Simulated assay, not measured.
Amino acid sequence: MTRLPLIDNSHTPLVLIGGTLCTARLWGPLIERLNVSAVICLTLASADSAQESSRQLLPVLPPRFLLAGFSLGAIVALQMAADAPERLAGLTLTSVNPLADRPENAVPRRAAVQAAREQGHGEWLSGSLWNHYVAPTNRHNRALHDTLCLMAEETDSETFSRQTEIAISRRDNRAALRGLRCPVLILNGEHDPICTPEHHRLAAECAPKTTWVTLNLAGHFCVLESPDNAAAPLRQWIMESLICE
């Protein structure tokens, strides 16, 4: 891997928000390839809604920052864009469903938390979600499988429960995208049955300054499945956002 020149974003840190059952491990390969000077990795662990998460995070973050969210983290990032658009130098939504959750999803979502508690998070993820999380070509990638299971195992049941409540209670915040004046990147995997290409189209069509990139041979966890291909548009988005500052 060729290391690209350092991007000095010390005055505008890159804030990364992970998704359900994710830790900072999610971002490791990507951070190495982006080679930026200031990164803040956040795990959603202490709030039961995107609105509460936004209220907790905004006061402790720098006045201006680049914001990128993955999956559930993208839902919270979109809420932060609705609450404080003037704080964002740029916004990236990766593997996002920008719509409100369907009411009928609440019962199976909460049942999944209980099943994971009983089985162990890693074993439950392997049996229930692994085949939905990655592209078919990556289903035999043992290292990737073990990384996702390890992140799940590192996430306690209370955190998983709170993350689930964020998903259940999420709002449709697409209107926030229409008001943004900063560069917006929409990033997704081609083979994602959870947050589909259609979900990303719905997000991309709402933002006036949007770049939409779909990664081939990647699924929901595109940032781990294809870090080289994910890093290229993210690095371009960072440089564009800093130029616009």
Rank of each mutant, 00 (worst) to 15 (best):
P5L: 01
I7K: 06
D8V: 14
N9P: 02
S10W: 08
T12A: 07
L16T: 00
T20R: 11
C22S: 10
C22V: 03
A24T: 01
R25V: 00
G28N: 02
G28H: 03
L30F: 04
L30A: 01
E32R: 13
E32N: 09
L34N: 03
N35H: 07
A38D: 05
C41H: 01
L42Q: 04
A45Q: 13
Q51E: 12
E52R: 14
S53H: 08
R55K: 14
P62L: 06
P63N: 14
F65I: 02
L67F: 03
G69L: 12
S71V: 08
L72D: 04
L72C: 09
A74R: 00
A77M: 07
L78C: 09
L78Q: 10
L78E: 05
E86L: 02
R87L: 01
G90P: 00
T92N: 02
T94Y: 08
P98W: 03
P98E: 02
D101E: 13
R102N: 08
N105M: 15
N105I: 11
A106L: 08
A106F: 13
R110P: 01
E118P: 13
Q119Y: 12
H121S: 13
L125W: 04
G127P: 04
S128L: 11
L129A: 08
Y133C: 13
Y133G: 12
T137Y: 02
R139G: 04
H145I: 08
T155P: 03
D156A: 15
S157I: 15
E158T: 15
F160A: 07
R162G: 09
Q163S: 09
E165M: 15
R171S: 08
D172V: 06
N173D: 06
L177E: 05
G179S: 12
R181L: 13
L187P: 00
E190K: 14
E190M: 11
T196W: 05
P197Q: 02
E205F: 10
A207L: 07
P208K: 09
P208V: 12
P208G: 10
T210K: 10
V213I: 14
T214V: 10
T214C: 13
L215Y: 00
N216D: 08
N216K: 12
N216C: 10
L217Y: 10
A218M: 05
F221P: 00
E225F: 03
P227I: 11
P233I: 06
L234S: 06
L234N: 07
Q236S: 15
I238W: 06
I243R: 14
C244H: 12
